[in-house]
Design a protein around this nucleic acid. Structure first.
Lengths: 227, 227
DNA sequence: TTCATGGTTCGATCGTAATCGAACCATCTC
DNA sequence: GAGATGGTTCGATTACGATCGAACCATGAA
């Protein structure tokens, strides 16, 4: 009974619909002001103020005062991960509301998830790779095939290093926007690194957005989506 | 507002102290009956029955009827992960209660956390490895040193493969029992694999317990804990 | 069959916490 | 200075849900 970290306290904090909306909005990667959050959560300024105070007090979010504005953001990476985990379970259990994509178009298109790529492009790429036999998908397992190994090597990704490791080189990760899977694991991370190294895209500062430039997106689609 | 998976619903479920106790107890890896859980959570049979019904309905836990008993267990691995994430945040934010170790001795000693080793042995091993300079711990980063690379190679762990990968080969993971860190990442996974491959220990079926046999534990301690 | 034990259902009670109106404070602009 | 906007504090209302007593159903044992 009196055992373990006090899970209930912070779970209860996230458990209020208004606060959950606040946190979800904050996960969309921007720092937001109290009034903006009030609008998002659909409550008045007073209520949102009370909620924010509690969240700050529990150190789930952090404040930055700037003039007469107060900008709120998630307190740390672990909170974002926690929310992702919650979304995963919520999705599996069917506790979904409609329209689950992040509103920010850039974020919906391509973003960082842990150390790999997520978003529309990532999902599309993963499914294309599956179609072309780069991976062998069995329930609960994902294996890199010889084809995939060759193709990745052709792109300049050091497959031997990834594949020989004891750790599963590739995994599927549920994309909470698309509600489909994208590629994770060491190979997923390598792909993201490749995208950044080649200059196809860059990470926006203080954001999880991965911004492709026009020719970079074209190249990415050619390599991962087409033929 | 009406966006994304319905986080609030399940967070609220976990947010009740009694239910949090139930889930925490279930994370200790055994299937438990309703009355046992009532005792653990400190409520009457009726209340625990109501709670369990809600948790089952939300598919956070699953039931198995056996005679006149009903055994409850966590519905999936994702729920356990979610709870671990919650514990991590709860710990960071200082929302801890006393006595945080899992009660099951075997589980406290050595268990699986994701794909690597957790528990007393894991924490001790990690700290010993740190002491002996296998890793270089900087805030937010953990790097494998040449020493560590050599030592791991000596044990028959393919370090080149792990290290050359784009993905961070080693990471720290907060052990919710010990409240200290253990080794995660590709190297952490490799160590677990090594422990299992050598026959030092085996995973108990349907459990996260990693059971060392006497000589296996001795070997493990010699390799990872002593000079 | 009778009895004990595991578990559920129903109804009533009771606390807690979310919410808002109204007033208030703080900062910036003009 | 006056006004406007962002944000907080206070108090009162309200609704939801956790809890338990009591009765009930189901299974297994004697």
């Amino acid at each position: 009974m009196k055992d373990g970290p006090n899970i209930a306290r912070i779970a209860a904090l996230i458990g209020d619909p208004a606060r959950a909306d606040i946190l979800t909005a904050l996960m969309a990667d921007r720092a937001l002001t109290a009034t903006e959050l009030a609008g998002i959560a659909g409550v008045t300024k007073q209520t949102v103020s009370a909620h924010l105070a509690k969240l700050v007090d529990a150190r789930l979010i952090a404040v930055e005062a700037q003039g007469r504005h107060r900008y709120f953001r998630l307190a740390g990476h672990d909170v974002a991960q926690l929310l992702e985990a919650l979304m995963g379970v919520a999705f599996r259990t069917g506790a979904v509301r409609l329209r689950s994509s992040p509103r920010e178009p850039a974020l919906r298109k391509a973003r960082v998830c842990y150390d790999h790529l997520a978003g529309e492009l990532a999902v599309a790429a993963f499914e294309a790779m599956l179609m072309r036999g780069w991976f062998l998908a069995r329930p609960g397992e994902l294996r890199l095939t010889d084809t995939g190994r060759a193709e990745l090597a052709r792109l300049g990704i050091d497959v031997l290093a990834l594949d020989a490791g004891r750790r599963p080189a590739c995994r599927m990760c549920l994309d909470w926007g698309e509600r489909r899977h994208h590629l994770a694991g060491a190979v997923g991370a390598a792909v993201l690194r490749h995208v950044l190294d080649t200059g196809w895209a860059r990470r926006l500062p203080d954001s999880r957005v991965v911004a492709f430039n026009p020719w970079g997106e074209r190249a990415f689609r050619e390599e991962f989506l087409l033929a």
